[in-house]
Design a protein around this nucleic acid. Structure first.
Length: 1013
RNA sequence: GCUGAAGUGGUGGAAUUGGUAGACACGUUGGACUUAAAAUCCAAUGUCCAUUAGGACGUACGGGUUCAAGUCCCGUCUUCAGUACCA
């Protein structure tokens, strides 16, 4: 019997599905364990071999945990709202729901064939109305919440209203918009309902606000930063400007401190926690208010260096700062407006990245220093971002390098307030060893003392206070797109109103086109049936809008991260119980949160931060009991493609002086040279394209000259002159399917390719020794380079073909074998034969041509040693997520047991359990053949017994000055002194020393001997 | 720019707490089997010098600590990712 992986895998995949082998139960005596993958966006291209990497790792872990006696929840679903489906809809007119459904089918088929132990009964899709009903519901909870810093949690907005009714807003300590006017209880009670709504919006955890976006007037839409290349839109190259737009925002900043503190309670990598810490960006300092001369306005700044306040020689506002237009003097108006227009065209990322170009304009206005009362010139500069802090800085050139460069550039004074600091070349930015001088009451103080004093003095003046600032900004939650969750929001007199949760979901309306409207409204502006009837509580036709009972609905949709910020709770609930809650209390209580979460590091500051935010809100409002969604998190790396290149050479027109010929004619002829000639990478000369007068060069030259002659050009004029024929080289991607393990191109396959064959039909390939390849006389070697897998680079490898040719078990093993899970690594299909051969060897260990070989033979000591060192290593590896080394360990075990001719069931049966998380199909099959009725997934993991690994002797490496010269086998229990004596007496030692007396002999028992001298 | 990560043979990678660098594979070369090919099996394979014995060099680069450094410390370079509307 041979290893027929295709039928074995089909058999077991069918078996698992039919018997619901991996269905999780919410009632169990076993301890629970929740393993989750970041769910995929179902793209039209289907899976490539890079996608399942993390899923294989989590599947191994999930299967391992089952062997270890856990009740495992291991679900999967789809993040099925998103831009690509919408782009496709715009191009083809097909409804995104239709293409998404088709894509999901493909994904499911591809995932199924890899043999994952997913509980598909709990699948979720974010674009399903039964799912997004609850995304809308959570949005309403955010709207109905405010953040109370006194209780340090989110509370029902009703508790805020009660406070307002009794005591106004003076004592309210909450996360809210800046600059809210104070009011008394009496004033509050006299406000109109509309005025009250406006005020409450400034406190709600989701609110409407003006935010800046990248607006592309030509496309009539907002663009993401990465849709903008060099300041213009990626599609079409249209200009983009920054523009303010009213959008929903999430007050995530309210949770900044808790998001920061919570990091200490979760088991994530330090690097990931560090990125979140930096993203949250806590800094402690002071806010300082500067009065603007001649106006009532003040400019608030935040500074981490209040101690340097006497070093301020100017202020810089972001060009978008609201005061700029007001305070700019008539003389400066033109320059300021020109500058603002210029910066509106630069993306924020550009502005942050570019620190070399210094630019700015003086507004003509002055602020008053809070202590010295000196006038301070107010500038604008695009190095100040409106979205960070207050959009204004007090510039201290002697203590901040950017301020210093700005001051130098514009010739602004740089007063030195540091004792013994040299600021002739650069700013003195250190906080250590600071001694303040020229600073009135701060003279002689250090950073800490001076900062404290300044804050004290500022508070006395009422011009500032100590303040903690976070870089974390509130998250914009509106998207001007079609394919996302609709908001459960309608507008009465432009004031947003929530639809009662009882009437959810609000389903996406039909539109005839997925583009923005001509007026620049989002695609939902095209819907005809998109108004809310407050009497029937239904969505009705727009023409019924009367603004009394029927009102317009919100036209924006929610962003991609909305649905993914809570999906892990949905899986906890069985599908049948999902109607009345996002998950029942029992389910939430049982599964708590995700024990192991695996996904890409690109989500470090997006998804992973937003999810934590929503979970904290849901906890505050009493819907869940956990503070953090993901206890342990592993980032998997990316599998990159190994692109293949062929190199097309084209002759450059010769250029020779002193000969009479028509150069223009020659160029024309050369450009129409009809042959496609390809040379292998090894023959490329960086200077001339080909090595001059080499064989391949002469081949090209002959073809070229023949062509010239055929067209009536007399080539003899070049024969005797000293001209050089150089060529241009053009590397072209070719499909990696046509490349074998030795980087050789299957020329025939390329020439008959239905897609590109025509381009290569008459191509001439030259081999490494310079000959034209005809038939099988030689091979063409391609060049290789590692790039991201992408359709356009023809380096995409599909798991379908791998499963068909080698089997899912080979794919699973190989993906793990490639290297550490978290690392980026290139895929090269050639290497898969290694693990495939291993599986064949494994099979042969159990099955001979005549049938099963396994018997009840007594295991030998060697058999037991091999088995137990494998148990130990594999268990350690899985627990450390070091899956690549396990695969090597299996190979070593099988090699050893094959050499030992082991047939003992006592060894081979437990070995199958060790391998089953990695290669479940072959393990199940052999397990069954050994006579087991139940699935191997229910078997208990073998117990490691250290007694089988005890060694009596050790092969000591004997080093001289740290260099290993020979090894010596000595008993393990030999004393240090005896080891030294034995080694020193050894003939090889004497030969090495050559009569010298060693200065020192280091003996580390069980490890090494090092002789120095 | 800022933040995070990575650099070891021809290739993917291994190396416990600082203790024999290159496990395990791929590829390559040679051999067995075969009419031949495939499959399978065996052997060699970091680079350089040497007939052998053996030696020198070697973990991105430059320093340092140590009996001993891929591993620890300082500095430099290169590559990748994120940078708030791709998911």
């Amino acid at each position: 019997m041979t290893y027929d992986f295709n039928s074995i895998e089909e058999k077991w995949q069918y078996h698992w599905a039919k018997n619901q082998t991996f269905k999780a139960s919410n009632i169990s005596d076993k301890p629970k364990y929740y393993v989750l993958d970041m769910f995929p966006y179902p793209s039209g291209a289907g899976l490539h071999v890079g996608h399942p990497l993390g899923y294989i790792a989590s599947d191994i872990y999930a299967r391992y945990k089952r062997h270890k006696g856990f009740n495992v929840l291991h679900p999967q679903g789809y993040d099925s709202f998103g831009l690509p489906a919408e782009q496709y809809a715009i191009q083809t007119g097909q409804h995104p729901a239709v293409t998404t459904e088709a894509n999901i089918k493909t994904y499911r088929r591809q995932l199924d064939q890899i043999g994952f132990s997913f509980d598909w009964s709990r699948e979720v899709r974010t674009s399903n109305p039964e799912y997004y009903k609850w995304t809308q519901w959570i949005f309403i909870q955010l709207f109905e919440s405010w953040y109370n810093y006194d209780s340090n949690k989110a509370e029902d907005i009703k508790t805020l209203i009660s406070k307002f009714e009794v005591e106004g807003n003076a004592k309210v300590n909450s996360a809210c918009d800046e600059n809210i006017d104070p009011f008394t209880a009496e004033e509050w009670n006299n406000y109109s309902s509309e005025e009250q709504q406006s005020i409450l919006l400034k406190y709600r955890l989701t609110y409407l606000a003006e935010t800046e976006v990248n607006w592309c007037p030509a496309l009539g839409t907002v663009l993401a930063n990465d849709e903008i290349v060099n300041g213009v839109s990626e599609r079409g190259g249209h200009s983009v400007v920054r523009k303010k737009m009213t959008q929903w925002s999430m007050r995530i900043s309210a949770y900044a401190e808790r998001l920061l503190q919570g990091l200490d309670t979760i088991d994530w990598t330090d690097s990931l926690k560090e990125s979140q810490r930096n993203w949250i960006g806590k800094s402690v300092g002071a806010s300082v208010s500067f009065n603007v001369n001649g106006y009532d306005d003040i400019i608030d700044v935040f500074t981490t260096r209040p101690d340097t306040i006497f070093g301020v020689s100017f202020m810089t506002l972001a060009p978008e700062h609201e005061l700029v237009s007001k305070i700019t003097t008539a003389e400066q108006k033109e320059a300021v407006e020109a500058y603002i227009e210029k910066t509106a065209k630069r993306s924020e990322r550009d502005r942050m990245a570019d620190v070399k170009t210094i630019s700015g304009v003086f507004t003509g206005a002055y602020a008053k220093h809070p202590f010295s009362k000196e006038p301070i010139p107010i500038w604008i500069g695009d190095y100040v971002l409106s979205s960070y802090g207050t959009g204004a800085v007090m510039a201290v050139p002697c203590g901040d390098q950017r301020d210093y460069d700005f001051a130098k550039y514009f010739d602004i004074a740089i007063p030195n307030i540091f004792e013994n600091a040299d600021i002739s070349e650069e700013a003195f930015a250190s906080k250590d060893n600071v001694k303040i001088t020229n600073s009135d009451f701060l003279d002689g103080m250090n950073y800490k003392k001076a900062s404290k004093r300044v804050i004290f003095e500022l508070e006395k003046l009422g011009q500032g206070e100590g303040k903690t600032n976070y870089r974390l900004r509130d998250a914009v939650f509106s998207r001007q797109r079609y394919w996302g969750e609709p908001f459960p929001v309608y507008y009465v007199n432009d004031k947003p109103q929530m639809i009662d949760a009882a009437h959810l979901p609000i389903r996406l309306p039909e539109v005839e086109k997925y583009l923005p409207t001509e007026e620049g409204e989002p695609p939902l502006g095209r819907a005809d049936v998109w108004a809310w009837d407050t009497e029937t509580n239904t969505v009705v036709s727009n023409d019924k809008i009367n603004n009394t009972t029927i009102h317009p609905l919100e036209l924006n949709t929610m962003p991609g991260w909305a649905g993914s910020s809570w999906y892990f709770f949905r899986y906890m609930e069985d599908t049948i119980n999902r109607d009345n809650a996002f998950a029942t209390e029992d389910a939430l209580k049982y599964w708590e949160n995700v024990d192991l979460y695996i996904g890409g590091s690109e989500h470090a500051t997006g998804h992973l931060l937003y999810s934590r935010f929503w979970v904290k809100l849901l906890k505050d409002r009493g819907f869940v009991t956990v503070e953090e969604p993901f206890k342990k998190l592993i980032n998997q790396g990316m599998i990159l493609g190994t692109s293949a290149f062929v190199y097309r050479v084209k002759p450059n027109p010769p250029h020779s002086s002193g000969i009479d010929y028509n150069q223009a004619d020659l160029i024309k002829l050369t450009n129409s040279f009809p042959h496609s000639v390809f040379i292998p990478k090894g023959l490329i000369d960086s200077k001339f394209g080909l090595k001059l007068n080499s064989k391949e060069h002469l081949t090209l030259k002959k073809l070229y000259f023949d062509w010239l002659e055929k067209n009536g050009f007399d080539v003899s004029i070049f024969q005797n002159s000293a001209f050089m024929l150089t060529c241009a080289i053009q590397p072209l991607h070719v499909k990696v399917q046509y490349i074998n393990a030795s980087d050789e191109l299957d020329i025939e396959a390329l020439k008959t390719d239905p897609e590109f064959g025509a381009d290569y039909k008459d191509a001439i390939f030259i081999s490494e020794n310079g000959d034209i390849i005809e038939g099988n006389n030689d091979v063409y070697k391609v060049g290789r380079d590692v790039e991201k897998m992408s359709k356009s680079k023809y380096n995409v490898v599909s798991p379908d073909s791998i499963c068909k040719d080698y089997g899912a078990d080979s794919l699973r093993l190989y993906e793990m074998f490639l290297g550490p899970l978290e690392q980026y690594k290139p895929w090269n299909t050639a290497g898969i034969t290694g693990v495939h051969n291993f599986l064949k060897k494994l099979w042969k260990l159990y099955v001979a041509d005549t049938g099963l070989k396994v018997n009840n033979a007594q295991p030998t000591a060697d058999n037991l040693k091999t088995l137990h060192k494998t148990i130990k290593k594999v268990q350690e590896d899985i627990e450390n997520f070091s899956f690549n080394t396990s695969v090597s360990t299996f190979m070593i075990a099988v090699n050893e047991l094959t050499a030992q001719k082991c047939t003992s069931k006592d060894i081979l049966e437990p070995l199958l359990i060790l391998i089953s998380p990695y290669a479940p199909h072959i393990a199940e099959e052999l397990w069954e053949q050994l006579g087991n009725a139940d699935s191997i997934s229910t078997a208990y993991f073998p117990i490691f017994d250290a007694s089988h690994l005890v060694e009596s002797s050790k092969k000591y490496p004997i080093s001289f000055n740290g260099k290993m010269r020979f090894t010596l086998e000595l008993p393990m229990d030999m004393s240090k002194d005896d080891i030294e004596k034995t080694v020193m007496a050894h003939e090889k030692t004497i030969a090495q020393l050559d009569g010298r007396t060693p200065k020192k002999v280091i003996v580390v028992p069980g490890k090494i001997v090092n002789i120095v001298g």
